[in-house]
Structures are given as C-alpha cells and as structure tokens.
C-alpha cells in the first residue's frame, strides 16, 4: 500500500497554493529565523578570525635605545635565542621600522618628513612559548634592565581584553543562534498547526475512510519541507547579499577588522547547505508533530 507519487504531488501542490497567506507565513517564518541563524554564524566566524589574527601576533616587544651599541643589541639577541621560554623572536632593523612608520603615518606625510631612519629605535618582537599572561609578563621583565634596552611593551593587556570581549561575543552569538533555531521550530510548528487546523475536516475524512496515520502525515510533512526549503533559500540569498554588502563596503576596504567578517565562498557553501538542511528538517518535523495532534481520534 504505497503512497502514489501523483497523489502526493497533486495534494502538496494544491495545498501550497490554496492557502497562500499561510504558506507565505510559514516561508517567512523560516526565512527570518534561518537568516538570523545565518548571520550569527557569519558573525561567529568573523569574531573567531579577528581573535585569531590578534592571538598570532607578537606577545611583547623589546625596544632598544636608538643609541644602543651593536654589542648591546646582539647581547639581547643571544639571550633571546638561548632562552628556552622564547618560541620565536625577530629583529626589526631601522629600515624596517621606518617602513612601518611611513605606512602607519601614510595619511600625514608631515609627520614622516620630520623623521630620519637613524633616529628610530630598533626592536625585537618576541613570541614566548606560552601565551599565559603572567608567564609573558615575568619573561618580559627580564629584559627591562638589560643594557641598551629602552622599554618592554606588552601586547598582553590588549590581547587579554580582546579575548575577554570576543569570548563574550561568541557566547552571545551562540545563544542568539540557538534561540533563533528554537524560535524557527516553534513558529513553524505553530504556523503549520494553523494550516492543519484549517484542514482538520480533510484529516477527519481521511481518518474516517481508513487512511493510515502516515498517509495523512506525509503530504503535510512534504508541504512543510517545501516551505522550509523555500524559506531557507530566502535566508541563504539574504546571507549572500549581506556578505556581499560587507565585502564591497568602504569599511572592509580600509579596515582589516571589518574584512574579517567577509566570508569566503568556501565558508558560505557549507553554511548555506546547513541552512537548507535545517529549513527542510524544521518544516518536515514541525508539520509532522503539528498533524499528530489531529491523528489520535
């Protein structure tokens, strides 16, 4: 006693167009909730990337005095190289410092003109073996009094704050995404319950003439699946649109930070796929449950 395909196609088709406002409500419900979910996923990826970028950076910088002698400079180099607590260090000479300086003050050439490369200090950028803040601090202190060293600057304080903020942001976004998913399921359930209620006579007749529960349920589930898929499609389009807007914006061109929130096609593909799957599942499962209420009679 298989369900005939032409029966299913006909029922699903006519039911979808018969009550356009309910169909639209279901589609929009899924679209809005999944778009919300999509945006939170984008945001999550972006925040993760920003955090990664900063965490990879130098943990502290040992600035040499501009008048430090070559011996003093190579003494610091040797100490850094010998220390088992230092993972990596690099020397930034005058020319490199000047290049960075020029880049930094690109907009204000007057400042650049006042400086000669010889006046600039050189520095060591140090990556310790551990990122633990107190570890980095105490390691950095060792170089404070070293001859020829002007000061040790810690990236730690900034990273510490940034990590705290991104941690909060990721948690917040995860909660928003979870709430959006639950909201989608509930809204879909309710919308379809309304649709099923509108067709309770049909369900009653089906039961009366001896249709099995699955025979009653499957057209509704298929209908929900189609609505969920269309809704998810709208959400995916919205996500692509917003992503493109961010990518093409001036802010993204000028700020690395904003650029972090632009997703690459490689990320968008899986996210779209997940949203479509979620839409189909929400639609089918929501309808399945919604119709069950009318089945035990």
């Amino acid at each position: 006693m298989a369900i005939r395909f032409d029966y299913l196609a006909k029922e699903t088709g006519t039911n979808l167009v018969r009550n356009p406002s309910l169909t639209l409500a279901a589609v929009l419900t899924v679209a809005v909730s999944l778009a919300l979910l999509g945006f939170s996923l984008i945001f999550r990826e972006g925040v993760g990337r920003v955090s990664d970028r900063w965490s990879d950076d130098v943990e502290f910088i040992v600035w040499m005095r501009p008048d430090a002698s070559d011996e003093q400079i190579s003494a610091v180099d040797q100490k850094l190289a010998a220390s088992p607590l230092v993972a990596d260090h690099s020397y930034v000479n005058r020319a490199a410092t000047f290049a960075e300086f020029v880049e930094y003050f690109e907009e204000v050439p007057e400042v650049v003109q006042t400086v000669e490369p010889e006046q600039l200090p050189t520095s060591y950028r140090v990556v310790p073996t551990q990122t633990d803040l107190s570890f980095v601090d105490s390691l950095g202190q060792e170089y404070e009094g070293q001859p020829g060293v002007s000061e040790v600057v810690f990236a730690g304080d900034f990273i510490k704050q940034l990590n705290a903020i991104t941690g909060l942001a990721i948690n917040g976004v995860t909660i928003v995404a979870a709430v959006a998913a639950v909201a989608a399921l509930l809204l879909m359930y309710n919308t379809i319950r309304t649709a099923v209620f509108a067709r309770r006579r049909e369900v009653e007749v089906m039961k009366l003439v001896g249709a099995t529960n699955w025979f009653v349920r499957i057209p509704f589930m298929l209908e929900g699946l189609v609505q969920g898929l269309i809704g998810a499609g709208v959400a995916v389009l919205a996500m692509f649109g917003v992503n493109r807007m961010i990518r093409d914006s001036r802010a993204a061109a000028e700020l690395d930070f904003v650029n972090s929130f632009v997703l690459q096609p490689a990320d968008l593909g899986p996210i779209s796929l997940w949203l479509l799957l979620a839409g189909a599942a929400i639609g089918a499962i929501g309808s399945g449950f919604a119709v069950t209420r009318y089945l035990d009679a």
Binding site: D6, V205, M206, A211
Partner: peptide, 11 residues
Amino acid sequence: SFALEVIGRPR
C-alpha cells in the same frame, strides 16, 4: 476518489 486515493488504491 479522495476516499480511494488515501487508502492507496491504484489509479
């Protein structure tokens, strides 16, 4: 025919 369709009778 709905009554026959929902109990899976052939076309």
